[in-house]
Design a protein around this nucleic acid. Structure first.
Length: 493
RNA sequence: GGCGGCGUAGCCAAGCGGCCUAAGGCGACGGUUUGCAAAACCGUUAUUCGUGGGUUCGAAUCCCACCGCCGCCUCCA
């Protein structure tokens, strides 16, 4: 069965066939780096990470490009609103590029925790200003754009396909227009390609039209074309970007190139928190760092990044997901079960006997792999794929209870955990350690416990036992030092 | 006002015309195990899919109506 994916452009699930056989170019709208990543980023990038991993599993040579938006565009196309990066820069009293640098590093750190593979290319918008100017010039030359007072706008009336992605037409939008009309535009639906910089605007560049900065749809078109060609196989992003962002990308790209910009548009759905849209003003805005540390009033504890990943994969990427403390707790329990089962299996391999692979187990493994592949091929049904992992656990448990299970049989099971749970879903780790993330704190507590036990022995004049404590700890590389006043401290050797 | 989605057990969630008297996870309950716990393991937990009609030999799955919830249409992943 071939891989099928839902294409927003055609509103159908289609069999996936890349433009060039065996190779896939995939572009995903990346974050604007003016703050730490939040739950919405997690859902989006975990979903696309699984898509990349699945394509690679299928044998495609994937080039995954995800931009970093390091120039904060205006909040709308009218001459109002603020540049988000500049705003944050003022708040933090740092240069906008320092802000971008800082939050880019933060973003990658969070995505690493979620076990998202790094994109092959992470191009920065500010590193592609010449290319963006070039595209604007092309559009002007071809008559799809016009200059007004140092700004350049795309003339929507010249592009007949405008609205094909989002199912809108210009008439409807004019009827329901809410955005204050920018007097410079010929048509309210026209969008900025290049904006004239106001005197106070920090991030600005020279252009044929004067000092200014690029419109917010431009960077994705330019960087997608530069690294992946005029027609990319997959362009992904959040559903909220379907209009106007992606619609505008299509318009400017196809007007310039005369060929389709994207073959498959893939959009993932949004997250809610406790049933409501996540928003800064609603008090339910959760950053990933807060989630991983349990540092938020709606959270009862810290959650393992991979448990969060598992929660995301439990539902479909095109369905909205509601994050709640209860949902996270449930996902954490499920994740712990997988981790413990895999650990138990791997530990057992050390002592198991050598021999033949159990053929009955093999047949079952083949069945599970087929079920997994079928689910993933069906528009990435990660929920069913994940359920296969739990079936695999049951199979594994059965073998662990069987004293004559061979290393080879256990290996075959582990191999499937590794390939399906690890390589594809990214919830099974390569290596598990008993140690917690915050080892130092744990160590402190354990040492305190040890010292208390030894104090009790000393109080009872059981110096022999007290010495055994000290000697055994010394063997572990820990030195105990008895200070005056009955205080005992410890240090590493 | 325009566009789109959703409503399946206590909770999350898959299924999208017959294999469904509906996966999987969490929780709960009963049992095995345990000095007691924890963990682990076994079992039970929806004859029914928001409500009411209709189409069909057959519907959770298609159509209509109604009720309820959510998102997008302004930057947002």
């Amino acid at each position: 069965m071939a891989f099928s994916i839902y294409n927003t452009l055609t509103r159908k699930t289609e069999t996936f066939e890349p433009v060039h056989e065996g190779r896939v170019g995939m572009y995903v709208c990346g974050p604007t780096v003016y703050g730490h990543a939040h739950l919405g980023h997690a859902k989006s990038y975990v979903s696309f990470d699984v898509l990349v991993r699945w394509l690679r599993y299928l044998g495609y040579d994937v080039t995954y490009v995800q931009n970093i938006t390091d120039v904060g565009h205006l909040t709308d196309d009218a001459d109002q609103g603020e540049d988000k990066l500049a705003k944050q820069a003022v708040r933090e009293k740092r240069h906008p590029m320092a802000i971008a640098e800082y939050y880019t590093a933060s973003y990658f750190a969070d995505m690493d925790q979620l076990n998202c593979l790094r994109p092959d290319i992470s191009p920065r918008a500010t590193g592609h200003i010449p290319e963006q100017i070039e595209l604007v010039q092309t559009l002007l030359d071809k008559g799809f754009a016009y200059v007004v007072n140092g700004s350049v706008y795309f003339d929507v009336a010249t592009f007949k396909d405008y609205g094909k992605l989002s199912g809108r037409n210009r008439e409807d939008m004019q009827a329901g227009a809410r955005v204050e009309v920018n007097a410079e535009k010929r048509n309210p639906a026209d969008f900025a390609l290049w904006k004239k910089a106001e005197p106070g605007h920090i991030m600005q560049w020279n252009s044929p039209w004067g000092r200014g900065y690029p419109g917010w749809h431009l960077e994705c078109s330019v960087m997608s074309m530069k690294y992946l060609g005029q027609t990319v196989d997959i362009h992904g992003g959040g559903i909220e970007n379907q209009f106007p962002h992606h619609e505008c990308e299509i318009a400017q790209s196809e007007a310039a190139n005369g060929v389709p910009f994207v073959k498959y548009w893939v959009h993932n759905n949004m997250v809610t928190v406790n049933g409501q849209k996540m928003g800064k003003s609603l008090g339910n805005f959760i950053l990933l760092k807060q989630l991983f540390q349990g540092d938020h009033e709606v959270l009862s504890r810290a959650y393992d990044p991979l448990a969060v990943r598992q929660l995301i994969l439990q539902s479909h990427y095109r369905s909205p997901i509601d994050f709640s403390d209860a949902a996270l707790t449930a996902a954490q329990s499920g994740y712990d079960k997988i981790a413990r089962s895999v650990m138990t299996l791997r530990n057992r391999k050390v002592t198991a006997l050598q021999g033949e692979v159990d053929q009955v187990v093999c047949v079952e493994l083949d069945r599970l792999q087929a079920k997994f592949e079928e689910a993933m091929n069906d528009d990435l049904n990660t929920s069913v794929a994940l359920s296969v992992l739990f079936e695999l656990i049951r199979l594994s448990v059965g073998q662990l209870e069987n004293d004559s299970a061979t290393v080879e049989t256990l290996d075959a099971i582990d191999n499937l955990f590794h390939r399906l749970g690890g390589n594809v879903l990214g919830v099974v780790k390569e290596q598990y350690t008993q140690a917690a993330e915050n080892d130092d704190e744990l160590l402190d507590h354990l040492m305190q416990l040890m010292i208390e036990q030894r104090q009790t022995a000393r109080k009872n004049k059981d110096f022999k036992a007290a010495d055994v404590f000290r000697d055994r700890l010394a063997e572990c590389g820990v030195i105990l030092e008895d200070k005056p006043g009955g205080i005992t401290t410890w240090r590493r050797k």
